[in-house]
Simulated assay, not measured.
Amino acid sequence: MDAKTGFFYLFSVVLLFAAFRVITARNPVHAVLYLILAFSQAAAVWLLLKAEFLAIALVLVYLGAVMVLFLFVVMMLDIHIDTVRKGFWKHFPLAATVGAVVALEMAAVLMGGFRGMDEPKPVMAVVDAAGQVVQYSNAKALGKLLYTEYLFPVEIAAVILLVAMISAIALTLRQRKDSKAINPSAQVRVRAGDRLSVLKVAATQKAVAEMPVQPVVEEKKA
């Protein structure tokens, strides 16, 4: 067994363990952290398969954005674990049945779907028109394909993502009546007369006359 095969088994074992802990962890924050570990191991496996673009995209998009969002949402939500656990054993038979069906389908695909197929060998170098060997890059080839043949779908997807981002910002920054935000421009233009006003109020009770204070005289001893 060479080093590449050893790393593949190592990443695969850690990936399976992290995926198992995602569904068995009692703390939602721990489940999200195990999911981050699973994505990182999947990116490492893709690197071994020479799919550098997919590995980098998985790290940047999921580990850098989606998982951070999930972590913040889980930490901000007030999830009552005891309430969630009450219906666990009630729905366990149905969940176990669905899980077993999914596992059997995946086993059938993996065991019978790839028989008689040779392992694809990635092309590491290509020869140009002049007969010179040029180093091959998956990311470069994929970039050329996206921005030449599939340029129009990429632009449509970019516009949709931009509209979604602007909509999310607009929904977040909408004015609320119960908001206690302060406008800095209004603070700069404030005047003392606008903050304090002196009103003359008539007295409701008569003033009580003060009693004269009697001097205290100390007797001297003879």
Rank of each mutant, 00 (worst) to 15 (best):
D2C: 13
F7Y: 11
F7C: 04
F8D: 06
Y9A: 14
F11T: 05
S12D: 04
S12R: 12
V13H: 12
V14K: 15
L15W: 05
L16F: 13
L16Y: 13
F17R: 13
F17Y: 02
F17D: 12
F17T: 08
A18H: 11
A19K: 02
A19W: 12
I23Q: 12
T24Q: 13
A25W: 00
A25P: 04
R26Q: 01
P28S: 05
P28T: 00
P28K: 04
H30E: 08
H30A: 08
H30W: 00
L33N: 07
L33T: 03
Y34R: 08
Y34I: 07
Y34N: 12
L35A: 14
L37K: 02
L37F: 06
Q41R: 03
A43D: 09
A44F: 12
A44P: 03
A44D: 14
L47V: 09
L48I: 12
L48E: 04
L48K: 09
A51S: 05
E52R: 04
F53R: 08
I56P: 00
V59H: 02
V61M: 11
G64I: 03
V66T: 14
M67F: 08
L69Y: 06
L69F: 11
L71G: 05
L71T: 15
V73H: 04
V74D: 03
D78T: 02
I79G: 06
H80S: 09
I81H: 03
I81M: 02
I81Y: 00
D82I: 02
V84I: 10
R85I: 00
G87Y: 05
W89R: 00
H91M: 00
H91A: 03
H91L: 01
A95D: 00
A96D: 00
A96R: 00
T97L: 04
T97P: 01
T97Q: 08
V102S: 04
V102L: 06
V102H: 10
E105A: 14
M106Y: 05
A107Y: 13
G112P: 06
G112E: 10
G113V: 05
G116I: 06
M117E: 14
D118G: 05
D118V: 07
P122Y: 01
D128I: 11
A129I: 15
A129N: 11
A129M: 07
A129T: 07
A130I: 02
V133R: 14
V134H: 10
V134C: 03
V134T: 07
Q135N: 12
Q135M: 15
Y136F: 13
S137R: 09
N138D: 09
A141Y: 11
A141I: 08
T148E: 10
E149C: 01
Y150D: 09
L151V: 11
F152C: 08
V154D: 09
V154I: 12
V154M: 14
I160F: 13
I160A: 15
I160T: 10
V163D: 04
I166H: 07
S167G: 15
A168H: 14
A170M: 09
L171N: 14
L171I: 14
R174P: 02
R174G: 06
Q175L: 09
R176G: 13
S179G: 15
A181D: 15
I182Y: 11
I182G: 03
S185R: 06
Q187G: 03
Q187F: 14
A192W: 09
G193F: 06
G193A: 03
R195N: 11
L196V: 13
S197Y: 05
V198D: 07
K200G: 01
T204R: 08
V208T: 15
V208L: 14
Q214R: 12
P215A: 11
P215L: 13
E218Q: 11
K220G: 14
K220M: 07
